[in-house]
Design a protein around this nucleic acid. Structure first.
Length: 333
DNA sequence: TTAACTGCACACCCTCGAAT
DNA sequence: ATTCGAGGGTGTGCAGTTAA
């Protein structure tokens, strides 16, 4: 929790309202105190306290990963050790605070994150190009796609948040990658072996199960997810295709990503393809024990799942490779 | 009507530095 | 070395407001 090395200061200023905030820059994120968040969002400090506590209580964020104690010099010249909150926490509070300023902040956060990605890799461009040219192209297309989706879609704040999360997660993994030296970068990421084959019957059973659950919860007995001809059957068959005598989708990650992609894009059902796609994707991961990371956290949380589903639905078929790689990026630890 | 949000007021804790 | 007061930062109760 305590971090005092390599501290940098960034100044956030809003001339209109003469707000000037000294933010701490560390570990590739921005840190602010409760009072500073309040200033930026134009809300009373105690409001921020309450939102933060609600965010931690509802497990939206983990206090340990977004909180740090830094020493800072107050206006009285004394040095105090105080709690700082990272950009993740600031964004979450920003989504709860109900003020015009906070709306501005959401626009700002989207822009900053976008710039963060774009600038972040402009800086390393040459070096990266030497290391992994195609990886760079992949990220470039991903950024373009994400930007387009944000611009063309009217997203609810939850979806927006999910999308931002996708962007930051993807950026983080990218930043991590750039830190590896040449040798390490050359080693391919570890993919998982396929241990359990998903059969058509498994999938149908699982979907039925979900349908019953939904009917129980929503009291809605209307059937949805009627299969179009044998759409699902051939789709699942495709997952296990071979090319020459080798499987076309050689790892669990390949298969999971393609399962999600195919269900959403090929419309094997008359309706509810996105829902069923997301569900089958989670089901597929869970039955082979790949739904959770080692630390017990879901590899793909609900927001990210919604965002990914949206991205797949929104994407151009030409961008299939980018999307598949993006999804796979979430599945490897 | 209800849940979520807001701001005020107050209590509390911590840190610092001066006084003892 | 200990005590004490000042002031920064945090948490919570309460009552009012807003939006669904």
């Amino acid at each position: 929790m305590k971090e005092e090395k390599n501290k940098q200061i960034a100044i956030y200023s809003d001339k209109k309202k003469s707000i000037k905030v000294e933010a701490v820059l560390q570990k590739e994120t921005v840190w602010l105190t409760q009072a500073q968040i309040g200033q930026i969002l134009n809300a009373e400090r105690s409001v921020i306290t309450k939102h933060l506590n609600n965010i931690f209580k509802s497990r939206e964020l983990d206090k340990n990963s977004v909180c740090a104690i830094f020493a800072h010099t107050a206006t009285d010249g004394k040095t105090y050790k105080t709690q700082y909150y990272s950009l993740d926490a600031i964004i979450s509070v920003g989504y709860r605070v109900n003020s015009q300023k906070a709306t501005q902040f959401r626009i700002w956060a989207t822009k900053v994150l976008r710039e963060h990605i774009i600038n972040g890799f402009t800086v390393n461009r040459d070096r990266l190009k030497q290391l992994q040219g195609d990886k760079l192209d992949e990220l470039e297309s991903a950024v373009a796609l994400i930007r387009r989706t944000i611009e063309t879609r009217r997203l609810s704040s939850e979806q927006e948040k999910g999308l931002l999360r996708v962007i930051t997660d993807y950026t983080n993994s990218w930043v991590l990658l750039t830190k590896y030296d040449n040798h390490q970068l050359a080693t391919p990421k570890k993919l998982s072996k396929i241990r359990r084959v998903l059969t058509y019957d498994d999938a149908v059973l699982a979907i039925d199960g979900m349908r019953q659950q939904l009917a129980k919860k929503l009291g809605d007995s209307e059937l949805y997810g009627r299969e179009r001809q044998e759409g699902l059957k051939s789709l699942i068959g495709n997952l296990y295709q071979t090319y020459g005598r080798k499987p076309l989708y050689p790892s669990l990650e390949h298969q999971a990503a393609h399962l999600l992609y195919f269900v959403i894009k090929d419309h094997p059902f008359v309706d509810g393809n996105k829902r069923i796609g997301a569900f089958l994707f989670i089901y597929f991961l869970s039955r082979s024990g790949h739904l959770f990371k080692k630390d017990g956290e879901r590899k793909i949380n609900d927001n990210a799942l919604v965002a990914l589903t949206l991205l797949v639905a929104e994407s151009d078929p030409k961008e299939k490779d980018v999307i598949i790689k993006l999804i796979m990026n979430f599945l490897v630890e």
